[in-house]
């Protein structure tokens, strides 16, 4: 069996995967990316690299991916449909594949209003659903988005998508997840889970439809540094739910950062032990990448299984 990426091999082999997120810097220096990659290298199976998240200009996800790959971690390139039309998306992804990227995560992207260029024009030529479908068709049928044949060297990405169980309408989130799997998504990373009860209800519906058998679902977790961060996410970020009990817990903690890490570890253990159908965790330690190794170790996910993968083997 040929695998598209090390992450796919890990997941298909039944290992509980660990991915993390590295946010590229707001400048042209790669040292922070390389520093974080070195730090996470032995503790995660792959790292996402965000694509100008919250619409703030950052070093590109594909260029960051080159640095990460060079440090010995498999990157998951995030591609939003906010900034590029269908021509630029395809050109960039052909380039990304040629540079050794093998995992692709397809997203809409935060609206530019939230970023540092709120007067920019958004693109949204295609949407994330269409990107998933067109990239899987590019791999499986060797076709550009327009239908024209790719004569050779078609990019063969392991394709992922996101799901947000905390956005509305709640029941439709499962329909939309199914739609993404139908479109070609092979792995799913969820939005940060703080409301575990709602996530469990979501997963019940997912399992009832057998969706966990058709794609690898990785549960998203985020360690919080303070009760203010929790409050901000609760009130200021659309599509996120933070229970008051979590805000209070951080507020009452003697050392909120330690408590935040502790909460995150508890969440991972709970998800792994009690929620069926979850094939891994995705740790989004926003601007706090250095705590990931500790979280992975204390959650009992270290050492990571050794899976051999040669990115050239498909070429």
């Amino acid at each position: 069996m040929k695998y598209l990426s090390k992450l796919q091999k890990m997941l298909d082999s039944g290992h509980f995967a660990v991915t993390a997120e590295i946010g590229p810097p707001k400048h042209a220096g790669a040292h922070s990316i390389r520093h974080h990659a070195q730090l996470l290298k032995n503790h995660v199976d792959a790292t996402n690299i965000t694509d100008s998240q919250t619409a703030i200009v950052r070093l590109s996800s594909i260029a960051s991916g080159v640095h990460i790959l060079d440090c010995g971690i498999e990157p998951i390139v995030q591609m939003t449909v906010r900034d590029r039309n269908r021509i630029a998306i395809q050109a960039d992804l052909l380039g990304a594949y040629s540079l050794g990227m093998r995992n692709l995560l397809c997203l809409s992207g935060d609206h530019q209003q939230f970023g540092n260029h709120p007067t920019s024009k958004n693109v949204f030529d295609i949407d994330s659903m269409q990107l998933i479908y067109l990239m899987s068709r590019m791999r499986d049928e060797k076709k550009f988005f327009c239908g024209e044949e790719i004569k050779e060297y078609e990019p063969r990405f392991f394709i992922g998508a996101v799901a947000n169980p905390f956005a509305d309408p709640f029941e439709y989130r499962v329909d939309r997840l199914e739609k993404k799997i139908e479109a070609g998504a092979q792995f799913i990373q969820t939005q940060c889970i703080f409301d575990m009860e709602r996530f469990e209800r979501f997963m019940e519906m997912v399992r009832a439809r057998g969706l966990d058998q058709r794609a690898h679902i990785l549960a998203g977790v985020t360690p919080l540094k303070s009760w203010r961060a929790a409050k901000y996410i609760q009130t200021g970020v659309s599509g996120m739910i933070v229970p008051d009990s979590l805000v209070e817990r951080l507020k009452n903690a003697a050392d909120p950062k330690k408590e935040g890490i502790k909460v995150c570890i508890e969440q991972i253990k709970h998800i792994r032990e009690n929620i069926k159908g979850i094939h891994g965790v995705h740790v989004m330690a926003i601007a706090w990448e250095e705590v990931v190794p500790e979280i992975v170790e204390k959650a009992g996910l270290y050492p990571r299984p050794q899976v051999e993968f040669n990115p050239e083997e498909n070429d």
């Binding site: 906010r82 809409s108 992207g109 935060d110 609206h111 209003q113 939230f114 958004n122 949204f124 949407d127 994330s128 659903m129 269409q130 996101v162 799901a163 947000n164 905390f166 956005a167 509305d168 309408p169 439709y172 939309r176 739609k179 939005q191 659309s238 599509g239 996120m240």
Partner: peptide
């Protein structure tokens, strides 16, 4: 839709309102 999504809603939809 502020993102002109044809297969929505995106993950920013909450309580019937847009993320923006």
């Amino acid at each position: 839709c502020s993102k002109s999504i044809m297969n929505g809603p995106c993950g920013g939809s909450q309580h019937g309102k847009c993320e923006i």
